[in-house]
Design a protein around this nucleic acid. Sequence first.
DNA 1: CAGGATCCGGAGGACATCGCTCCACTTGTT
DNA 2: AACAAGTGGAGCGATGTCCTCCGGATCCTG
Lengths: 230, 230
Amino acid sequence: MNEVAEDVGEERPLRADAARNREKILTAASRVFAERGLDATLDDIAEAADVGVATVYRRFPDKDALVLALFEDAIDELAALAARAAASENSWEGFVSFLEVMLERQCDNRGLRDVFTGSPYAQERMEAAKQRIGPAFSALIARAQADGYLRSDVNEGDILAIEMMISSLGGAKGGDAALWRRYLAIALDGLVVRREWTRELPPSPSLEVIIAALHVSKGVHRPHAKPHAG
Amino acid sequence: MNEVAEDVGEERPLRADAARNREKILTAASRVFAERGLDATLDDIAEAADVGVATVYRRFPDKDALVLALFEDAIDELAALAARAAASENSWEGFVSFLEVMLERQCDNRGLRDVFTGSPYAQERMEAAKQRIGPAFSALIARAQADGYLRSDVNEGDILAIEMMISSLGGAKGGDAALWRRYLAIALDGLVVRREWTRELPPSPSLEVIIAALHVSKGVHRPHAKPHAG
DNA sequence: CAGGATCCGGAGGACATCGCTCCACTTGTT
DNA sequence: AACAAGTGGAGCGATGTCCTCCGGATCCTG
């Protein structure tokens, strides 16, 4: 528990409406960042919160502070989950379940994914937070390898890379399961030592779904669309 | 072979210096798009070509035309390669070799990757060009499945998705081989029916390399960096 | 319920970027 | 030499982003 832009102790309690607005801002920011990623404007967030931009800037000195308030704890929670997974009874299940948690959260939340790909917002603190996942993550992998589940010729960087590659497809749905479940299953079949330890593939998507997912995965900005072409 | 913004037949041969500049522009554009993706500015390209912006716009009516001139043939060549792979003796080798070609080109060329993720430049023609790969691609997969190499519970959308996910890591090098080779190998181990049909993993990268690759993979734009914070 | 501290909203300033054009000047060609 | 063809780069207009200003509304205290 840290205090980033929280009200600092008891120094000056917020006025009722201000506190209310602060919550509205956090709620809206959480939603907007999740949907559109960290590139979303504070203006966008203000609008979504049904609040003026100035109100946002009064409560959070800048975008970094807002990002920090929203994501630092989320990352620490992931670190805790990694630690729990590393201590789970079956090392393979721990390994898989942590990948699932990471993917689920990153795919549901473009903002979180942006944090992991190293977006420039609140960079230092975020980098530090991410490193707090490291030890448990390494342990998770080492144990799954020591127990003969995870192939021994991969390292933690590989797992990270694979996790990020899969999450790059975003949270698109094909059938009723998210696509990442399917590609995680395939990746695990490539990572596990014996295939029979893995599960069946989740339902398959249509080609259209894939293509749509690829289109959105690279961000949704249209680049200026020819202003005065006469 | 099409003529996009080429000199139209014999109608008006370009002046010597103009023709020279046209080549310089194409060369520079090819390099700049490959390095920085289709978001690169025509101003960037002009600078790289050591030529004024106007010269670029005189030779290519707009960015779309330049993109088209550079990438349409490249995509048609990929279609031809897909057809050749689909006709190769061993269907698994054909399948793998086509994936390798796609990945190699997309990782060496951010612009080409942008085309495949559906960038808005020259969209229609590019979409049409990409569809010309489709039939051979499907055949490739169907044959690898029919021959019992490729697992039967995946479809062409899956393969496309996997190919794009891997290429999202870009052409970063870890050791001396490009990273995509390693992750393609793992993916193939998850896709093949019997593991002994696949090769060993290419050399492993360090964690730093992976992290660096993730950082660049999402584009290199710094978002404004706090202009007047006083 | 008065009065002051606190907070609000949204217009807009400062700056950046991008696609593209204008036009005074230079160069190639005949 | 003469003229068409070509050149470069300042700069226009549109768009986008971060953040501030300030007249007015709102809350809380006494």
